[in-house]
C-alpha cells in the first residue's frame, strides 16, 4: 500500500451552540471517520468545539486570487446597500 495515499482534509469546528462552523486547519487521514477522530485530538483538546465537519480538500473549489478585482470590486461603489447611505432626520430614532 502506498504511504502517500492518505488524503488531506479541511477541518471546521463549531465552538458553541448557535455559532457557525469555522475553518481551523487541515490534516491527513485515511478516511472521513479517521479525519474526525484526529481533528478531535488535534483541534479540540481545550474545549474549543462541540461539533466537527471534515471535507476532503480536493472537493473544495476556490475563487481565483487573480480574479479578485473582477469578483469583488463591483461591490465597492454600491454603498446604497448599506443603511447609512440614506439621509434621515435626527429626530427619527431607532430605524
Amino acid at each position: 500500500m502506498d504511504k502517500k495515499s492518505w488524503p488531506l482534509w479541511e477541518v471546521f469546528i463549531r465552538s458553541k451552540h448557535g455559532l457557525n462552523h469555522k475553518h481551523v486547519g487541515s490534516l491527513h487521514a485515511a478516511d472521513a471517520q479517521m479525519a474526525i477522530e484526529n481533528s478531535r485530538d488535534v483541534y479540540t483538546r481545550r474545549m474549543e468545539g462541540i461539533s466537527i465537519w471534515v471535507v476532503e480538500s480536493k472537493n473544495i473549489t476556490a475563487s481565483d486570487p487573480n480574479q479578485q478585482e473582477a469578483m469583488f470590486e463591483p461591490a465597492v461603489d454600491k454603498i446604497y446597500r448599506h443603511p447609512t447611505f440614506y439621509n434621515l432626520p435626527d429626530e427619527l430614532e431607532h430605524m
Binding site: 500500500m1 492518505w6 479517521m34
Partner: peptide, 11 residues
C-alpha cells in the same frame, strides 16, 4: 498507516 489505508479502501 498501511492498515488504515487498506481499511479505508475496503470501506
Amino acid at each position: 498507516r498501511d492498515a488504515a489505508s487498506a481499511y479505508a479502501a475496503k470501506k
